[in-house]
C-alpha cells in the first residue's frame, strides 16, 4: 500500500509538471492562463453585451404573451442575486487562502462557492419552470414572444456559465484533495477560476439591475 502511495506521489510530481505548463510564464513574463482568461473575459463582454442589447432592442415590442411585469417576482430573484454576490466573496477568500498556502481552507471556500452557485442555478430552474408552465412565457415556436425568446436566451446563457463554473469549482476541489493542485506557482489556477466566477457575478449585477429592477420602476 505504501509503495502504491509512493507511486502516486511520483505520478504527482509528473502531474505537477504538466499542470505547470498552463501556469507557466510566457515570453512576457506573465502566466499564460491568466492572460488567456482576461482575453476570454473581454470577448465575453461582447457576448453578453449583445445578448443584453438584443433583449432591450426588442423590449416592449412583443406582440403577445405575458409582459415582464406579469412574470417577474422580485422575491426569488433577490435571493438568488444575494447568493451569487456572496459566492463572489467566498471565491475571493478561496483565492486569498490559496495564496496564503492554505489549500484546505481554499477548498472549503471553493466548495461553499460551488454550493452557492448550484443554489443560484436551482433557483433559475424553478424560475424558468414557473415562467413556462404558469405564466406561459414561451421560448420558441408559434406561441413564443420576443420577450420570451430574448429573456430565456440571455438568462439561459448566464445560467449555463454559472453551471460551467460550478463544475470547474468541483473539479478544482477534487484536484486540491488529491494534491494535484498545490499552492505556490499553481495558485494562479485558482485565481483564474476566480476571475471567471467574478465575471459571471458582474454579468448578473447588470442583468439584475437593468432587466429586473428597472422593470419595477416603470
Amino acid at each position: 500500500m505504501s509503495a502504491h502511495a509512493e507511486n502516486l506521489t511520483h505520478d504527482d510530481a509528473h502531474g505537477h509538471e504538466s499542470h505547470g505548463a498552463l501556469s507557466e510564464n510566457n515570453f512576457l513574463g506573465l502566466p499564460n492562463i491568466k492572460l488567456a482568461m482576461w482575453a476570454f473575459l473581454g470577448s465575453e463582454c461582447m457576448f453578453f453585451g449583445s445578448l443584453i442589447g438584443t433583449y432591450f432592442f426588442y423590449h416592449g415590442n412583443s406582440l403577445g404573451g405575458p409582459l415582464p411585469k406579469d412574470v417577474f417576482s422580485i422575491g426569488i430573484t433577490s435571493i438568488s442575486t444575494f447568493l451569487l454576490l456572496m459566492s463572489s466573496l467566498t471565491m475571493a477568500l478561496a483565492v486569498d487562502a490559496m495564496k496564503q498556502q492554505k489549500p484546505l481552507t481554499a477548498r472549503t471556500f471553493i466548495l461553499i462557492t460551488a454550493a452557492l452557485g448550484a443554489c443560484f442555478v436551482g433557483f433559475q430552474v424553478v424560475e424558468f419552470h414557473e415562467f413556462y408552465t404558469e405564466k406561459h412565457l414561451v421560448f420558441a415556436g408559434a406561441n413564443a414572444s420576443l420577450f420570451g425568446s430574448t429573456f430565456y436566451t440571455m438568462t439561459g446563457f448566464h445560467g449555463t456559465h454559472v453551471t460551467v463554473g460550478v463544475i470547474w469549482l468541483l473539479i478544482m476541489s477534487v484536484l486540491i484533495t488529491k494534491k494535484k493542485l498545490v499552492p505556490g506557482k499553481e495558485a494562479v489556477n485558482v485565481e483564474v477560476m476566480g476571475l471567471y466566477w467574478h465575471f459571471v457575478d458582474i454579468v448578473w449585477i447588470v442583468i439584475f439591475t437593468f432587466v429586473y429592477l428597472l422593470e419595477f420602476l416603470k
Binding site: 492572460l35 473581454g42 463582454c45 461582447m46 453585451g49
Partner: peptide
C-alpha cells in the same frame, strides 16, 4: 497589470458601443 486592464476594458467599451448602435438601428 495595464495589459489585463486593456484586454478587459476595451471590449467592454466596444460592447457598450454596439449596444447603443443596435438601439439606434
Amino acid at each position: 497589470l495595464t495589459l489585463y486592464k486593456i484586454l478587459f476594458i476595451s471590449p467592454l467599451f466596444l460592447a457598450m458601443f454596439s449596444f447603443f448602435a443596435i438601439g439606434s438601428l
